[in-house]
Each structure stands twice: as structure tokens, then as C-alpha cells.
């Protein structure tokens, strides 16, 4: 693997002015589109993007208005990892060099329907960077629960009522499931910490083989938050400890951010329409689950 020190740094000062994802029809304040835009600026012109059915493909490829300035393709919903793997294999077989193949898939497209193909892609160590932009539900179809929808969330398929308080399962432990494949590089990120995300994309860009980034990406439409707070709320989630920033590299976990104190979970939740109904007991359940996770991470990853 290329040593981190050898990789030229990318930041707001030296990042390309060129836009690769531009003129799309995403909602105002869309976190997913921020993740795609930043990642493509880091990856550059020689990139093949593969996107399954989902928000970013729905807003980016409406013939004849194409929003990607570099090569991009919509894949089947379950087949983004395998189509990207085919792109990488085909381009390699044709003798192409110095390019990157990247997937941008949502939480449902990654943790649910696309998971089998993703697991196969990592198993084969195909030369693909897989980025999951996680807005915590099937937003493109109108806010339905996915495997990464957190406990308590009200969605259109997990309505909160007298009998069931919304989503009653916690988020799938996606990052560790991916790491368990012994992948060369995996990371979590948030659009609330853009430089950290940029660094991780930049690192993955220079790794040959399968890599994975799970980036937390807010969705004002699905979350019931003001459009201008998208970056802030994605930062709040990290600061409240509900989302963690970590890496898996050379067989080791690394916790990138280990705050002494967490910001209020309740405040984070109450800012969002999707959590407004939550009882004190449900909020306590979220906090307990967070604490259990951090105890384990601090014990094993530090």
C-alpha cells in the first residue's frame, strides 16, 4: 500500500475548481450530493462512477440532462459493486492505467440490497472505492426504513404510534462488517467533517484494490431539518457520539476522534422531525447503545 506520507494532501486551498457533479436536481441541502461532489474533486477526471438506483442517480441522470462531468453510469439496485468491479476489470483488460472506479450508493443500496455484491467485490479485492452515503433511510422512494436507519426513527414504513415507537432496531454495524472482510482500507466519515472525509477519499484513491468509506450524509427532506443546517447536523451526530470517525487499515482499527465529552444526544434528536416523537426512555435507549459501542471501541481500537 502507498504510505500515507507519500500522498499529496488535498484541501480547500488546493482542491480543483472543476466541478464533476453539477446541475443535478437534488433537494436543497442534500448531504449525499455534497459527499459525491467532494469525493469526485479528490478523485479527479480519470474516474468511473457507478451509482445504483437511489437519490444520486435519480437526480443526476435524467436524459438528456446529465449531471456528471466525468464517466458515470447507473447500475441495477443490487449490482453497483459488481458493475463497478466489471468496469475496473474491463478497463484494466483494455490496458487503461491511472484511473479510479468509485461507487456512490445509499444506505439501503449498501447495507441491504447491494450487500451481497459488495461483499463479493471486497472478497475479490476488485480495484474499486465503494462510498456509502448514509442518510439513514430509503429517501429516494420517500423515507422508508433501511438496515442503517437508527433506533427510534420515524419513517413511512416504521410509523411512530401508540404501539410501535418508530424503528425498533439499531443501525447495522456496517463498518465492522466491512472490516471483517479484512479489506485493505475502510473508513467512516461525515460531511460535517469535510476535511476528514477528503483525506479518507484521498487515501483510498491511492490504495490498489477494494476500499470502503461510510460517509454520514444528512437529508433535510427525510430528516425534517432546515436545509441550511445539513453540514451542522452531520457534525452534531459525530459530536454526540452517534456517528464515529474511524479507519481500518493493515488489519487495525483506528478511532480518529475520541472526544472527552459528548454533546447532547437529546438536542441532536430534537432538532429533527424524524425523532421528535421519541420518549425519554427511547432516548435513553439510544444513549445506552452509544455508550456500549464507545466502550467497546475505546477498549479495542485505541
Amino acid at each position: 500500500m502507498t504510505k500515507v506520507l507519500d500522498i499529496p494532501k488535498v484541501n480547500a486551498k488546493n482542491m480543483t475548481e472543476k466541478e464533476f457533479f453539477y446541475g443535478h436536481k437534488a433537494c436543497a441541502g442534500c448531504g449525499g450530493s455534497i459527499a459525491v461532489r467532494l469525493a469526485l474533486k479528490v478523485l479527479g477526471e480519470r474516474t468511473y462512477s457507478a451509482l445504483p438506483a437511489g437519490c444520486m442517480s435519480a437526480v443526476g441522470f435524467i436524459y438528456p440532462q446529465m449531471a456528471f462531468n466525468s464517466n458515470a453510469i447507473i447500475t441495477t439496485f443490487p449490482g453497483s459493486a459488481s458493475m463497478a468491479a466489471g468496469i475496473a476489470a474491463g478497463a484494466k483488460a483494455l490496458g487503461q492505467k491511472d484511473f479510479k472506479t468509485v461507487v456512490f450508493a445509499g444506505d439501503g443500496g449498501t447495507a441491504d440490497i447491494g450487500f451481497q455484491a459488495l461483499s463479493g467485490m471486497i472478497d475479490r479485492n476488485d480495484d474499486v472505492l465503494y462510498i456509502c452515503y448514509d442518510n439513514e433511510a430509503y429517501m429516494n422512494t420517500g423515507i422508508q426504513k433501511s438496515g442503517l436507519t437508527p433506533y427510534g426513527t420515524k419513517t413511512t414504513t416504521t410509523p411512530a404510534g401508540k404501539n410501535i415507537p418508530g424503528t425498533i432496531t439499531h443501525k447495522k454495524n456496517l463498518f465492522e462488517i466491512i472490516a471483517a472482510h479484512d479489506i485493505a482500507y475502510a473508513a467512516t466519515a461525515s460531511i460535517g467533517y469535510p476535511q476528514d472525509f477528503i483525506n479518507k477519499v484521498n487515501k483510498a484513491k491511492h490504495v490498489k484494490g477494494a476500499t470502503f468509506i461510510h460517509v454520514y450524509a444528512s437529508c433535510p427532506t427525510g430528516w425534517g431539518t432546515p436545509t441550511e443546517t445539513s453540514v451542522e447536523i452531520a457534525k452534531d451526530a459525530v459530536d454526540a457520539g452517534l456517528i464515529f470517525l474511524a479507519e481500518y487499515e493493515d488489519g487495525e482499527y483506528k478511532l480518529n476522534r475520541n472526544p472527552k465529552e459528548f454533546k447532547s444526544v437529546e438536542e441532536y434528536l430534537k432538532k429533527q422531525g424524524r425523532f421528535k416523537h421519541m420518549s425519554d426512555a427511547d432516548i435513553q435507549c439510544v444513549i445506552e447503545n452509544r455508550d456500549k459501542k464507545w466502550e467497546r471501541m475505546r477498549k479495542n481500537w485505541l
Binding site: Y48, S82, A85, G86, I87, G90, L94
Partner: peptide, 8 residues
Amino acid sequence: MGASAVGA
């Protein structure tokens, strides 16, 4: 399909 989409 992916491979074919780059001309392979």
C-alpha cells in the same frame, strides 16, 4: 455489463 460499458 460494466466491462462492456468501457468497451471490453
